[in-house]
């Protein structure tokens, strides 16, 4: 049996180990993987979609700007089917405040699937928001706090 390590910030942490020797040329390999618990984030509720002061065109432009970075190719079928609401704050520079992103609600999948789906959605917001979203400065109070409903209905190739 060989010692295996979980490493974090350069320090060795606890780990588990298994030994496998089952096929020709595959003897003597040992491996381990630290198991990280997934936080409890699955919340269920009925949602309300509101439409306040932003024009339809602004909302559409914003939607397209986020969707083009919302990539579900690497997600499991279960994660793709998760529907979730992510809350965030957008700064006056029209860029998302990274620390403000939070999962408000989610339904339609296991905790692991929600976690995967959340990561993809969060990445979309941060990636496509890094140069600022197309939002009108004069309506900052309308878009400063947003809740984005991610509900994949028609993934495009």
């Amino acid at each position: 049996m060989r010692i295996l390590h979980a490493i974090k910030t350069g320090a060795l942490l606890a780990y588990t180990a298994l030994v496998g020797a089952v096929l020709p040329g595959a003897t003597g390999l040992a491996w381990a993987e630290a198991v990280k618990p997934v936080s409890s984030t699955a919340l269920y509720s009925v949602w309300r979609v509101s439409g306040k002061e932003l024009s339809a065109k602004t909302r559409k432009d914003f939607t397209v700007a986020v969707e083009r970075c919302w990539n579900t190719a690497a997600l499991s079928d279960e994660a793709v089917n998760v529907t979730m609401v992510i809350g965030l704050t957008i700064g006056p520079d029209r860029k998302p405040v990274a620390d403000s992103l939070r999962l408000v609600e989610a339904k339609g999948g296991s905790e692991a699937a929600v976690q995967q789906a959340y990561e993809a959605a969060r990445k979309a917001i941060l990636l496509c928001g890094r140069r600022g979203f197309p939002l009108p400065a004069e309506k900052y109070e309308a878009w400063r706090e947003l809740e984005l409903v991610f509900a994949a209905s028609g993934a495009t190739q």
């Binding site: 439409g51 306040k52 002061e53 939607t63 969707e67 994949a152």
Partner: peptide
Amino acid sequence: QAEPLRIELGTPVVEPM
């Protein structure tokens, strides 16, 4: 208090990460 504006997104892309 004003509730956050909610915006729906429904069309992700499917392309290699």
